[in-house]
């Protein structure tokens, strides 16, 4: 069990690093998908099967497809001059410095924290559902309202005005 966890975790970290360092947008996205898949393996090993499956279906299966879809539509070129410029050390030195401080902070926090072993019981989808509609009802409702707003906005942006019979007859 443990060894699978470490394999999945290594894959997740490696692919995430690859995802942010690839020049080719599609390759980067592919690595991101792999990272999401390995995270779902980690979740499965932690007995959270339902969340693991949802991670694959929603993140890896639906959202990343949309990302790839958009990247394909925009047809991002392989050689991007602006992005090349961002890769020189001066540009990311400051960001890397602060990220390093955060990382140190995280290590200290983990070291001092009281780590409890993960509950060794399988979390069924039923429990997830019940807790979503009782304990976390407010969060679910807020998320639903947010999504609804998003859908209405998308519909508004996507809807076209009806064309008049002929383009010469249009009011300017």
């Amino acid at each position: 069990m443990n060894i699978f966890f470490y394999i999945a975790a290594t894959v997740a970290i490696t692919t995430t690093i690859l995802a942010i360092s690839r020049r080719n947008a599609i390759h980067a996205l592919l690595n991101l998908i792999l990272s999401l898949l390995s995270i779902s393996v980690v979740l499965y090993l932690l007995d959270a099967q339902f969340i693991a499956a949802l991670e694959v279906i929603i993140y890896a299966g639906a959202i990343m497809v949309l990302f790839i879809f958009v990247t394909m539509i925009l047809n991002i070129g392989l050689e991007n001059k602006q992005e090349k410029k961002w890769y020189n050390p001066r540009m990311w030195f400051v960001a890397a410095f602060f990220a390093g401080i955060l990382f140190l902070d995280l290590i200290l926090a983990v070291k001092n924290a009281q780590i409890q072993p993960v509950a060794a019981q399988v979390i069924h989808s039923k429990q997830v559902g019940i807790s979503m509609f009782t304990t976390y009802l407010l969060a679910v409702e807020i998320a639903a309202v947010l999504l609804m707003a998003g859908i209405i906005g998308a519909f508004h942006l996507g809807s076209q005005e009806k064309k008049v019979m002929h383009r010469f007859l249009e009011k300017k």
Binding site: I33, A53, L54, V56, A60, G61, S125
Partner: peptide, 23 residues
């Protein structure tokens, strides 16, 4: 225990084959 979800996850990953193949 998540049989159907497993199927749905795999079928959603199957999209990549076609999208990436075409791209």
């Amino acid at each position: 225990n998540i049989g159907i979800l497993f199927f749905l996850g795999n079928s959603s990953l199957g999209v990549y084959s076609i999208v990436l193949g075409g791209w």
